[in-house]
């Protein structure tokens, strides 16, 4: 009996461990990341000024946005995604021919050790308040000739005014997009291009009037330029 009882306790303890680890990770993320990153969607209810004051991109819908594998590796080895930071107007200085990015004002991202990166990625992937937006998405990844895709991204839709589709090619106020396909879920890419305001009412990206199949072609272009070569 005694034996059985202690076995039962041991089993309960063992079963409890993953739950406890998860609770700890939530606390760690809150503590180590929540100082800069939003982990709830409360910002959507505030005035527009909150966008100017953001220290980091919101993570409250991380599970609807990111590729888990990318999260794990980026958290250990973070590199810059937004050439002009999270709020570009705060990182601008005068240059000889107009405004330039004040790179010295951009901080390095804190790195986390492998085991913690894994646990944090697991936790972040549970943050999925926008499953409905993902479910409503009809995008089926396909392919497009690179030259056609580039014309679309540049000349026809003007995305290249704010986004780079290759290192050092394209505007700098938005996140680089030649890495979008490895960072982001395909359905997120498509849904965000179609209506960035549904994700963030204070987004700095304009909501254009692009039809669904044109959006899908743009997403296909990001696939073509961003897919890891086999």
């Amino acid at each position: 009996m005694k034996h059985l009882f202690s076995l039962g306790v041991a089993a309960m303890l063992a079963a409890g461990v993953p739950g406890a680890a998860k609770a700890d990770t939530a606390g760690d993320v809150q503590q180590q990341c929540g100082t800069c990153h939003a982990l709830t969607h409360d910002y959507a209810t505030l005035g527009i000024q909150e966008r100017a004051e953001r220290k980091a991109p919101p993570l409250d819908f991380a599970g609807n946005k990111f590729q888990r594998a990318w999260l794990v590796s980026w958290l250990q080895n973070p590199t810059r995604i937004r050439p002009a930071g999270v709020f570009p107007p705060a990182h601008v200085k005068d240059g000889p021919n107009g405004d330039v990015v004040d790179a010295a004002s951009l901080a390095e991202h804190p790195a986390v050790p492998a085991a913690q990166a894994d646990a944090m990625a697991d936790y972040l992937m549970t943050l999925k308040p926008f499953d409905d937006l993902i479910k409503a998405e009809t995008y089926q990844p396909g392919t497009i000739a690179k030259s056609m895709g580039k014309m679309n991204f540049g000349k026809f839709k003007g995305c290249d005014a704010c986004h780079q589709d290759a290192p050092n090619s394209g505007g700098v106020s938005g996140p680089e997009l030649y890495t979008a396909w490895i960072r982001l879920q395909p359905a997120f890419i498509s849904a965000y291009i179609a209506n960035p305001l549904a994700w963030d009412p204070h987004t700095l990206m304009p909501k254009g009037d692009i039809k669904a199949d044109a959006v899908h072609k743009l997403a296909d272009y990001l696939k073509v330029i961003g897919e890891k070569q086999p």
Binding site: P88, V92, N97, D99, A161, G170, G171, V172
Partner: peptide, 9 residues
């Protein structure tokens, strides 16, 4: 002459 201007056609 914003930060994007140099990259625009």
């Amino acid at each position: 002459k914003g930060i994007n201007a140099a990259h625009m056609s």
